[in-house]
Amino acid sequence: MPRVKAILLKEWAEAIRIKMVLFSVAFLPLFMTGFATYLVWQGKALPEEARAALLNTSLMYFFILPVVIPLSIAAYSIVGEKEQGTLEPLLATPIRDWELFLGKALGPVVPGLILSWGAFGLFLLAAKVILGAIPKGVLSLPWLLSIFALAPFLALFAVFVTMIVSSRTTDVRAAYQFSSLAVLPALIPLLVYIGRLTAVNLTFVGIEAGIVVSLNVATLYIAVKLFRREEILTRWK
């Protein structure tokens, strides 16, 4: 898939040159890791149950991060091309619709995941230093599945929604503002976990995964339907 790779590399090359994007991509993981570490440090002296709750809250950040990081890149994805007038030469190449769409979707998701997982690793390291050992609950199967299997699907959903929004708005800022709605599905488990104050369990992760995968299929269908070069050129103005 050399054309998908070309789109990916181009997206990244452009993204790192946009200050707003660079801020969310570089600063946010560091901030979230720092804050999660602070919570762990705070909970050091607390009873076991309260410490578990704090730990769950800090782990949530690494669940949300892969969803939030790609948004700024994705918001720029289509509307940025429109702003620069680069869509027409791009669409005049032999690239197929699905290659363009996949490249545009993966462009934001891949760095989001790498940075989030990197931040998670940093957090584990910090937790080990502070607490002497990584707490058992952190490396539980439900949490690992949430962070490494569910989060990528949530990120993809957010990117698909953002790309649809990006294709319908006229400037990057508007796309970015509207696309923040795409984070909502990632917030649902957050609210549930916080409300119940319990560790995540496999049943909940399974239900959430089912919903998110269904949402992904539906959004992907809509996004691909809207992603037609003729529509893009003649109506996306």
Partner: peptide, 21 residues
């Protein structure tokens, strides 16, 4: 012209060269 303004001339051409194979 429809060029990626933040990218260099080299980068612009490299991108399209890859798309055209």
């Amino acid at each position: 012209p429809g060029l990626y303004r933040r990218l260099s001339a080299w980068h612009n051409l490299r991108f399209f060269a890859d798309l055209y194979g």
